[in-house]
Amino acid sequence: MQTKIASYFGRRRNWTIPYVLYLALFVLIPMLLIVFYAFANNEGELSLTNFRKFLMQPEAMNTFIYSIGVALITTFLCILLGYPAAYLLSRMDSARAKLLVILFILPMWINFLIRTLATVALFDFLKLPLGEGALLFGMVYNFLPFMIYPIYNILQKTDKSLIEATQDLGANPRQVFFKTILPLSFPGISSGIMMVFMPVISTFAIAELLTINNIKLFGTTLQENIYNGMWNYGAALSLVMLLLIGFTSLINTESNTKAAEEGNLI
């Protein structure tokens, strides 16, 4: 008996069983359920009503497009603010840079709901109106570290001799940046985009709190439907978002495999 157990654990393939079970239970089956719910009507019959409703109902569609817009702007602002920060950090001596990186990441250790509530309080205190501006501020504030870190990581690992080779071949400092440093850091930027764009589309708390429920994002719509028992419609909306995520990661795959090889993907 003992030898039987021993041989069972001895086979390396058997070690994967708990993980396979975990994936099946918590990823695969729920996914299938989403797909099933999305293609079923309230009576449980196969139908496309949910998708028809999404395409026909301007409200959901508008929210969806608006959300993508917010996500695009947030991502763009994050790159605009995050890249220079990451670049400066990568140029500092490593001890000081490490400290600063920790300072940048520090707010992430606080629950983001609390952080967002604090942002609301801050806006109230400064007598700034809540709304679209506050929403963008909150988004950028929350997601900026996710952009800075992968870019910093890749910039900091850039081979110095490549920069020297660029100078050696006749590039002035500006050309060194645009011809070598920037292209070499693309995998970092694309990691950053993945880390920012996707979550922005699906967050709802930031939008709710910073716009006093005036602006709805796609995440909010989703949450409302599920909350109100509209399981089938909610599932269809989830599926739309999943497809969007899948599509974006597909575009990213190539640069990400490269980044992952170099260990830059967090």
Partner: peptide, 28 residues
């Protein structure tokens, strides 16, 4: 500065640009 010197270097670990192919490395 190095970019204004009439000197070119062959680096110890080659320092070829990984994001460019052979032609573009040489044409750089």
């Amino acid at each position: 500065p190095p970019h204004l010197r009439p000197v070119n270097t062959v680096f110890q670990k080659y320092a070829l640009f990984p994001h460019l192919n052979v032609y573009n490395n040489i044409a750089f």
